[in-house]
Simulated assay, not measured.
Amino acid sequence: MGRVSQAQAQENRKRVIAAAARLFRERGVQAVSVADLMAEVGLTHGGFYRQFASKEALLSEATVHAFADLAVLLAEFDARHPGDRDSARGELVDYYLSTEHRDDVGQGCPATGLGSDIANEGADGPARTAYAEGVGLFARWLSADGKEDLATVSMLVGALTLARATAGTELSERILTAAHEALPAATD
């Protein structure tokens, strides 16, 4: 088989990053092997190292990608509520604390999906930096005054983490409901 063009190599790289962003959120970084990832996108295991220095380097890029997806989602909420951030925030909270979002781990919030894996990375690593920047972006979007609303981010991420960990039990639904009831004052 011949070498792929530069354009195809770039497209393959994008596909690997997108798949990693999804799979790392679904299964956790340690549970996704390079072979699993490359099979997911229909490429050979050997091709991985032509594109990425390591799985840790890919984690950084996948984290950036996942938070870019979140930024697109936030922009969609804004577009549905032009000039009305309170309504956009309200819709985001409704979605974020829904069973639909709870159950869509691979496409769900990267702050929740990648948090425990990023916590295990080095304190000065690029994945941690990308994660911190993404959480900051999310917190600024949630803020009514342009500062970071870290309390709301913390409640959303914590509630979703607990709801996912207890999915299939009645407690999971109660967690989502309790957080939703507690948040309206925080998002006004």
Rank of each mutant, 00 (worst) to 15 (best):
M1Q: 13
G2P: 15
S5G: 10
A7Q: 08
A7P: 12
A7V: 01
A7R: 01
A9L: 00
Q10G: 06
N12A: 03
K14W: 08
K14Y: 08
I17A: 00
A18I: 00
A20R: 07
A21C: 09
R22M: 15
L23H: 15
F24A: 00
R27W: 02
R27D: 11
R27F: 02
G28M: 02
Q30N: 15
S33F: 04
M38D: 07
M38H: 06
A39D: 15
E40I: 06
E40S: 08
V41Y: 00
H45S: 14
Y49I: 03
F52K: 03
F52Y: 03
S60H: 05
E61C: 09
E61Q: 11
A62N: 01
T63M: 00
V64C: 01
V64Y: 02
A71H: 11
V72K: 09
E76A: 14
F77L: 02
H81A: 12
H81L: 07
D84V: 08
R85V: 09
R85N: 12
T99I: 11
V105R: 15
Q107K: 13
P110C: 13
A111M: 01
D117P: 00
D117M: 06
G125T: 01
P126N: 13
A127Q: 05
A127R: 06
T129A: 14
A130G: 05
A132M: 11
V135Q: 04
L137W: 11
F138V: 05
S143Q: 09
A144M: 11
E148W: 13
E148Y: 14
D149A: 08
S154H: 11
S154W: 13
S154P: 10
V157Y: 05
L160F: 07
L162C: 12
A167F: 01
T169V: 14
L176Y: 00
L176K: 06
T177P: 05
A182Y: 08
T187W: 12
